[in-house]
Design a protein around this nucleic acid. Structure first.
Lengths: 243, 243
DNA sequence: CGTGGTCTTGAGATCCTTCAACTTTCGTGG
DNA sequence: CCACGAAAGTTGAAGGATCTCAAGACCACG
């Protein structure tokens, strides 16, 4: 269990110093399993730890008072979870395990030392936050201005790209979401999600069999979904020196 | 022109040290007017400065390839603008002046020194980002799961609360948005925005006269809009010491 | 083999959009 | 200061996208 999954996420951006690696590894010393369907915390719970996701897929969501749910974001290994715990007394979102997961919890007070002793890591956390912000605005634009079919296609692409999808020859992957969950993420009903999946299938953009999805026409998928990779085209020239 | 509008924004959260004030004030040494309708930059432009908004209202938006526009967020005095410039080579959003504005531009490289010398300010910038993130997720939930009327009501409340609304006896304020802009922010057509405004008026929740809006039934507005104040209930106990 | 959850499909209802015309407001130049 | 044109707002009617309700099929699991 040595090493830091969050560090691995940052490694695509810069080369970390030994000191920085150590500081991040210290955040992830403890581990905790989370069973499928279980929550890290619910909306309005008193906030506590922050987490790094080490294994599995999680999601954050909110409940509206008519009982409907909006899924805000899916989380994948290396992601920092419950970042709102850093600043709010009450959690603004519910965080739930979509599959069997392992998280590394740490106290928010750990950030004080991190920010003082490792300015570049502090800056990288901001970079990470900005990427998440960009991804959220993409979803905002999708919900506000694109068709149901485009939104469903976008979710499929996001899930495939962000899962640790071992390329096993074909471009197929196990989605691991119910159509209800896809609906809650895209602002649609499960019934309509079903119809949109069928339509994508009939147009030969995807194929489905027992939870597995394959992209038959990658280009057409990207086109209908308006997809933008927010982890690309970064510019981090300005970062402070490592420590 | 001394002082920092961004610092004023943070002042509600913590007491800044003299050093911190100075560091922030240095960011805002220059000023630049932006005429109504003009842009700071457009999507896909090469990124440049970051800005603090000193006066006026601005908005960030994206264009989809069918020509429709989604307004992502409105910005008010004290807000930090174009934060994506910190990390991307190309701007992911267009930033436009909704009214006559004044901004204070500074180079993104200024963050290097800020993060090294003022860890607590670095942490506060993260706090600021988290608040913005929470506001974005609220809008996401609104677009995905609430009715047109609720979304329009939510925009009205947000604009009133965040504008420097001098309380002139009544609870009325000048919206300063076209119905088209409200539509682009809520994911609706201008026509339907018009009908929703009318409906809010008929139900005696608001009154309108030549661009001025008054809330007649504050409670009912908050209820239909699902409004949550994301600047409240913060918990910043863990912040590193001032410098 | 039941049982509950998920998926699938149809039919009708609803919300929102589109299109089109008209009115009002606003900004600008004469 | 007025006149004009453009932008913004208003309203009706019809169409389309998505939802709701309902029922049946499939599947995994005890």
């Amino acid at each position: 269990m040595p090493g830091s999954y969050f560090a691995d996420r940052l490694t695509g951006m810069v080369v970390l110093s030994e000191n920085e690696r150590l500081a991040l590894a210290r955040l992830e010393e403890r581990e905790r399993p989370v069973r499928r369907g279980m929550t890290l915390h619910r909306e309005r719970d008193r906030t506590g730890d922050v987490y790094i996701l080490r294994k599995g897929t999680m999601m954050s969501s909110v409940l509206l008072d008519d009982g409907s749910r909006q899924i805000l974001r899916f989380h994948f290994p290396g992601d920092m979870l419950a970042t709102a715990s850093m600043i709010y007394r009450e959690a603004p979102e519910t965080i739930t395990a979509v599959s069997e997961c392992i998280v590394a919890p740490f106290e928010r007070s750990a950030f004080a030392a991190l920010y003082t002793e490792h300015p570049r890591l502090a800056a990288l956390i901001m970079v990470y936050n900005q990427i998440e912000r960009a991804a959220l605005t993409d979803r905002l634009a999708a919900l506000g201005r694109t068709s149901a079919k485009a939104r469903v296609a976008a979710i499929l692409i996001e899930m495939r790209n962000r899962m640790q999808t071992e390329v096993d020859g074909t471009a197929s992957f196990v989605l691991g979401l119910t159509q209800e969950e896809i609906g809650d993420a895209t602002g649609l009903t499960a019934v309509h999600v079903n119809r949109m999946l069928r339509q994508l299938e009939e147009e030969a953009l995807i194929a489905r069999e027992s939870g597995r999805i394959s992209f038959l026409d990658e280009r057409a998928m990207l086109r209908t979904a308006n997809y933008i990779d927010r982890y690309a085209k970064l510019n981090l020239d300005w970062l402070p020196p490592a420590n």
